[in-house]
Amino acid sequence: MSGKDVKALILGDAQADRVVPPTGFTARLTLFASGAMAFLAVFALALSMASGRLATRWADELARSATVRISAPADQMAAQTEVALRLLRQTPGVASVRAFTDAEQAALLLPWFGPDLPLDDLPVPRLIEVIETAEGFDAAGLRLRLQAEVPGAVLDDHTRWRRPLVVAADRLRLLGWISIALIGGAMAAMITLAANAALAANRQVIEVLRLVGARDAYIARAFVRRFTIRGLFGATVGMGCGVLGILFLPQVSDEGGFLTGLGFTGLGWLWPLVIPLLAAVVAFFATGFAAHRTLRSLA
């Protein structure tokens, strides 16, 4: 397709637009397919973006903190804790350290042991919260130093359980993108079918246009432009409905967790606007493919 053809496709030609008769069935099919697919695409996009935010939050928040657990005889606990705190404060990449108080540790164990836990009678390890700087610390080096100076200390940088969570969120995000791709593919297939039906129903129109000297690009453009506009319009309506659906979802809350976080934030609300444009592009190529194939077969 030449630049002139593309320009004619975008600007339109009132005369050329009329050569293809309006076909009710294919028009409705295209509008419905693009509308429904755009509606679903909004939710897939929201899912993908929400899981992306989740992955980032988990990765960021958990990556910035670590825990040192000190298991030592009661008479050595305070000394080993002091050594560990000093060592941690001297470690590059550590922003702050703080030993949990007995009350805080009791609160942590409350859900499992109840309110009357006699912490003094139990060999409960002392927990030290370590907050990292943006650069982070060398976990392997710190472990070696702790091993040498505080025999009862164990460093837990949360890697073991943070990684699967982040991987899960990343997979969820990937699933969202795959859904969008599948939705686009399904829409392309449906629009291709509708375009094929329209081309078959308008075989006589094509023959007449050829008889009077119409080039294939002209004939294809008449169909492509019509289906592209239908795809754009249907997807715009579907996208609008999808965005309204997202707006009516419950607001983000800690209690609701991930489900209430499904949606867009800030400039993310602009992303759904891309969907009708993508639908138009899909309709453009799907109809162009169908039209040129049909025109070749009728040559």
Binding site: R210, L211, V212, G213, A214, R215, D216, A217, L295, A299
Partner: peptide, 9 residues
């Protein structure tokens, strides 16, 4: 096909 179309004019 384009050449034929132009010729048919």
């Amino acid at each position: 096909r384009d050449g034929l179309a132009l010729m048919r004019r």
